[in-house]
Computed example of a mutant assay.
Amino acid sequence: MATTLPVPIEFSLPDGWLSAPPDEVGASQAAFVALHPGSSAGFTANVTISGEVRTDVTLAQVAAEAAARLERGVGGPVEIGRRNELESAYTQVVRMTVPIDGRPVELVQLQVFLAMPDVRDKSRRAVLEIVLSATPEQFEDLVGDFQAFLKTIRPDEGVTR
């Protein structure tokens, strides 16, 4: 069953991206999934959003946990590339090889960890994990879309809990 986010957010998808039910695309750990159908060619590039309340760790620690979880999930090593730490965000690029339909496929993820205070309870801090997953070729074509998407993410102050 798909998860929910600990804080309400709103965002806009770039053209060419379609939302998909997380459970139906095998991403039950995510609260939101978007697919780029035009990129399929053996792997459909995707964006996932998940999150949880985390007040006890730094964003760098959350990113390290995500990389370790990913390594366990793919059953092999992941290579951490470029990292960048900002005041309320942390990014890292991760490369890995995963078996898809019995063949190894190289994938790249741009993982963004975004600290976001709950607009109704400032003592709560959610950490959103927003991830672009793509083949290296798709990544080059779609990273601009992903960056544009990230700029649209903001707290949804019109939602009541």
Rank of each mutant, 00 (worst) to 15 (best):
E52I: 02
P22L: 01
S50Y: 03
V78P: 07
V74Q: 05
S28V: 07
R69F: 09
S40G: 03
E85Q: 14
F32L: 14
A45L: 05
F43Q: 02
G76R: 08
G26Q: 02
G81Y: 03
E79Y: 09
E79Q: 13
G42I: 05
L86D: 12
R69A: 13
R83I: 10
S88E: 11
N84P: 00
G75F: 00
A64W: 11
R54Q: 15
R83H: 08
A64Y: 11
V47L: 11
P22T: 07
E87A: 14
A41W: 01
A30F: 03
V53I: 13
I49M: 06
R69P: 03
A27D: 07
S88M: 10
A31K: 09
V57N: 13
A30K: 02
S28H: 09
G26V: 01
A64H: 10
V33L: 02
A30Q: 07
E24D: 13
G42W: 01
G51L: 10
T44Q: 15
D56T: 11
A66M: 00
E24C: 01
T44N: 10
P77G: 10
G75Y: 01
E71W: 04
T58P: 07
T55Q: 13
P21T: 14
G76W: 01
A60F: 07
S19N: 03
G76T: 04
V47Y: 09
P77Y: 00
S19T: 12
H36W: 06
P22W: 04
A30V: 07
F32T: 09
I80G: 04
T48N: 10
A20R: 02
V57R: 15
S19M: 09
V57D: 11
G42A: 04
A27C: 09
G38V: 05
S40H: 04
